[in-house]
Design a protein around this nucleic acid. Structure first.
Lengths: 187, 187
DNA sequence: CCTACCGATCGGTAGG
DNA sequence: CCTACCGATCGGTAGG
């Protein structure tokens, strides 16, 4: 049993924030998770709010990186959309704690960070909207729904995946991507 | 300024639970919302948890009633699906507080009520799955996604509607129902 | 519905 | 990372 690092603290915070919520997690809970007292956490972090900022920020960064990578995919808009969907699923399934905290606990952020996160979410959504527009233009995507609504519907599906999908089930992630594309009329 | 009724208390609780979360709402907050002290609430309600049970229970009842009504619609499975979607949107948009609390705050329920609510949600989802199966059988619904996944995708979209849809926008509710049906390949 | 509380718990600090 | 705290706030009760 060596000492905990700040990494350990942030990871445990993500776990608790994701499962019990920010308000439902006390610093003593978090300390208990790491085998130390609540007050000992303050040698790693300035405040509980700082921890939330850190966890949500990591979520934001993961989504951002995912979409940046998808943007570099060459091919049709449909290829990029597929890559965006696969990337989103990977973030949400491989980084459940940060993803869930990013998606669900933003309301507990101070107003400054909260509006940053809302902007990040808007930019992310607009990237989906844009790729749907491009797909309509280059003929690679035939969606009967307009891009603004289609982007919202897609993200609604993708954000909820974490709640029901299990990697050890019958459906592989690659198949899940296809199911999403097929459902939304792209495939 | 007459006295508050229990109705007022439950309604205000729904408002606060939906916006700040159960853990983020104190009995003093709730009292303040009604112009009285936190301790005064205990003449209307036994505990804070009772209030959550009440609000979530109302959400459950609204969804249940909606799906029961849709089940009585005669016509094809597609007609019933349309009615289920429209009903869901009405619940989620006309009773935002109860709907959001039902969907988001179940984790704060004691385990007994929580498992009741999870069962109710499963039954609700299976009603969607069933209508998709019937629609495939009677030929009124052509969905390329299998019913189990289609039901999840549909509900993911419908549950998220409350987060972005405004009644005073360009899109009417009836059009929204069509958009959902079209997106999912039913129309 | 208020007054006047209760013990428990909260986020956080000082000092080591 | 612990000891030993701090003031504030929590859900809730007794009695009117």
């Amino acid at each position: 049993m060596s000492r905990n690092t700040k990494e350990d603290v942030v990871a445990a915070a993500g776990r608790l924030f994701a499962t019990r919520g920010y308000e439902g997690t006390s610093m003593r809970d978090l300390g208990g998770e790491l085998g130390l007292l609540g007050s000992s956490l303050y040698s790693h972090v300035g405040s509980k709010q700082d921890l939330l900022v850190e966890v949500v920020g990591r979520g934001a960064e993961l989504f951002q990186r995912s979409i940046d990578q998808a943007g570099e995919v060459d091919g049709t808009a449909r290829d990029r959309l597929r890559s965006m969907i696969a990337g989103h699923l990977d973030v949400v399934l491989d980084h459940r704690d940060e993803g869930r905290t990013f998606l669900n606990e933003a309301r507990s952020l101070d107003s400054e960070h909260r509006s940053e996160i809302l902007s990040a979410r808007n930019r992310y959504e607009s990237a989906f909207r844009t790729v749907l527009e491009e797909g309509t233009a280059d003929g690679s995507i035939m969606m009967d729904t307009e891009p603004a609504i289609g982007a919202i519907f897609l993200l609604s599906i993708l954000n909820a995946v974490e709640r029901w999908y299990r990697d050890d089930g019958k459906l592989s992630r690659a198949d899940l991507v296809d199911e999403v594309l097929e459902f939304s009329g792209v495939l």
